[in-house]
Design a binder for these strands. Structure first.
Length: 194
DNA sequence: TTATGGATCTTCT
DNA sequence: GAAGATCCATAAA
């Protein structure tokens, strides 16, 4: 059975709040009639232009313009020559803040994920921002899609899933790396790091 | 188990 | 022309 799409009132809140609220929720992606479902276990908050690690810190450009849109949009960016990362725009319109989905726990469509990833190890399926994108076949063409309206990809509630939230500094960046803006589900196997 | 190097491309300077 | 919110195979310890 398909999880129920989350209410649109979920998105308007601060970036930090959204990052925490996203933990434990599931992300649903329809691909060729099959559903890929994963539980969000790790997310990072990227704030407005005062957060130097955020893409929006350099101001509005063609690349990051989606970040300055309304909450609930998908911002896909490309990095290191070969990797996509999936963000959900948050906060007020024009701020340029977003939540980066760093890791999910695979729930359904696992065979498709293996095909997309071309690896053997279950534990490596989605435990990193770019691994998750590969597994879910998230591509640049999805940049700017509205999670609130799309039926192809959306966030859904997950019933009675109990967990503890952990907080740490963000990963893989140099600027402002001391900020405690990474949120994760304690003890989950699919975290990119412990 | 940790360390290292290669892959590979968009955006802005 | 350089930097970048990375991943993975392979090598060393």
């Amino acid at each position: 059975m398909l999880p129920k799409k989350i209410n649109n009132s979920f998105f308007p809140c601060t970036t930090k709040e959204l990052a925490k609220k996203l933990l434990g929720k599931v992300i649903v992606r329809e691909l060729n009639g099959e559903f890929l479902i994963g539980r969000i276990v790790e997310a990072e908050a990227y704030l407005d232009k005062n957060d130097f690690a955020s893409h929006s810190a350099v101001g509005l450009t063609k690349r990051n313009e989606v970040m300055f849109g309304e909450a609930g949009l998908i911002y896909i960016y490309f990095t290191y020559g070969m990797h996509y990362c999936f963000n959900i725009v948050s906060g007020e319109k024009g701020k340029g803040s977003a939540v980066l989905i760093r890791a999910v726990e695979p729930l359904e469509g696992i065979e498709v994920m293996f095909e997309n990833r071309k690896i053997k190890n279950f534990g490596d399926l989605t435990n990193g921002p770019s691994k998750f994108c590969q597994a879910f076949k998230i591509e640049k063409s999805m940049n700017g899609i509205d999670l609130k309206k799309s039926e192809k990809i959306f966030i859904a509630d997950s019933n009675d899933y109990k967990f503890e939230i952990g907080v740490s500094r963000r990963i893989g960046i140099v600027k402002s790396s001391e900020k405690m803006l990474r949120f994760f589900i304690k003890g989950n196997k699919f975290l990119s790091r412990r």
